[in-house]
């Protein structure tokens, strides 16, 4: 029992940190634009594909460095030549623009790389068990995922709260005019924030590609959960996004690892059920089966009972 719990916790942490790498960029970009960037998870997918292609020729590590840079530059270009022009037509236009971009990227990925799953592998260097506990191995690559995520977040936190550029970014998110009047080039700051946010999604793609498989649907799979996270955490709140990411990572992981289901519950209540009952699918439902819908269930509950999210502020 303890071994299941420990491994489920570790795996939940891996997923949660990965989700936060996407959610943090999405939150920053949301604070800046005022709309959700529906193409955010597409940058995550591009990160995985670019890294896969680079890794074929130069190995995994080169891909880890260059794929996020390419994705970041691409993100900055999208902001500079796409969103900034669409911005003057209002939020709806921006939203539709990012929506269209997500489809465009998915089609482009299928066009260039094909619709099949790519054989993107974790590096041989990390192909060993990090430790063995209760006869179960924890892969070093997952440990590496935790390590790299945490170091990026510490770096990001330090830059945002301690450095002067971080202070300027924080101020520009809420008071762009005032910051511009003090002599700071706000459009350039926004372009960089968009680029860095996209690059973060790219890093997530690079490290998740080998584990969660690299295929054209990966943006939709993870993207929908990331949107759930920023809503649960409270739109625009980095701390909220962090809590929600870890929460959902752990929730899914525990649900998958558990072997409880409706039969156990019915037994506990002393109820019998008939195997030939028309609702037998419902009586035999297990927690691992409903794990994928738990984030969405949580979303509905949060929207009903706390519409601003965990840490969100009410709109002024």
């Amino acid at each position: 029992m303890l071994d299941v719990f420990i491994f489920a916790t570790l795996n939940g942490l891996v997923t949660g940190l990965l989700l936060f790498m996407l959610a943090s960029g999405l939150t920053l970009i949301f604070s800046m634009m005022g709309v959700l960037n529906f193409a955010h998870a597409s940058f995550y997918m591009l990160g995985a594909y670019f890294a896969y292609s680079v890794s074929l020729y130069f190995g995994y590590w080169t891909g880890l460095i260059f794929a996020p840079i390419i994705v970041g530059v691409l993100g900055a270009l999208v902001e500079r030549y796409g969103l900034r022009r669409v911005h003057q037509h209002g939020h709806v236009a921006e939203l539709v623009f990012t929506f269209g971009l997500a489809f465009l990227i998915e089609e482009a990925v299928q066009f260039f790389w094909g619709a099949d799953t790519k054989n993107y592998q974790s590096p041989d260097l990390l192909d060993f068990p990090l430790f063995t506990l209760f006869g179960q191995e924890f892969p070093a690559y997952r440990g590496f995922m935790i390590g790299i995520s945490i170091s990026i977040f510490i770096g990001l936190y330090y830059v945002l709260t301690k450095s002067r550029i971080g202070i300027i970014i924080q101020a520009a998110l809420t008071h762009p005019h005032t910051v511009s009047n003090l002599g700071h080039n706000v459009p350039l700051i926004f372009m960089c924030v968009f680029g860095v946010g996209s690059a973060l999604a790219g890093v997530a793609g690079v490290i998740a590609g080998p584990v969660l498989t690299t295929f054209p649907g990966m943006a939709v799979v993870l993207g929908s959960i990331v949107f759930v996270i920023v809503v649960i955490g409270g739109l625009g709140s980095l701390a909220g996004a962090f809590i929600a990411s870890i929460l959902i990572g752990l929730l899914q992981s525990y649900a998958i690892a558990s072997d409880v289901g409706m039969p156990d519950l019915l037994n506990l209540l002393g109820l019998e059920f008939d195997r030939n009952h028309p609702l037998t699918d419902l009586w035999t439902l297990t927690l691992p089966q409903i794990a994928p819908i738990l984030p969405f269930l949580l979303l509905v509950l949060v929207l009903i009972f706390r519409p601003t999210g965990l840490m969100g502020k009410r709109e002024q």
Binding site: I167, Q170, T174, H175, H177, L182, H184
Partner: peptide
């Protein structure tokens, strides 16, 4: 500006640092 747009979450010192070009 008239509306005294100080940045409420930043400290006084950080607000001043923002003024540096």
């Amino acid at each position: 500006p008239e509306n005294r747009n100080i940045f409420p979450t930043l400290t006084v010192r950080q607000n001043l640092q923002l003024g540096l070009k």
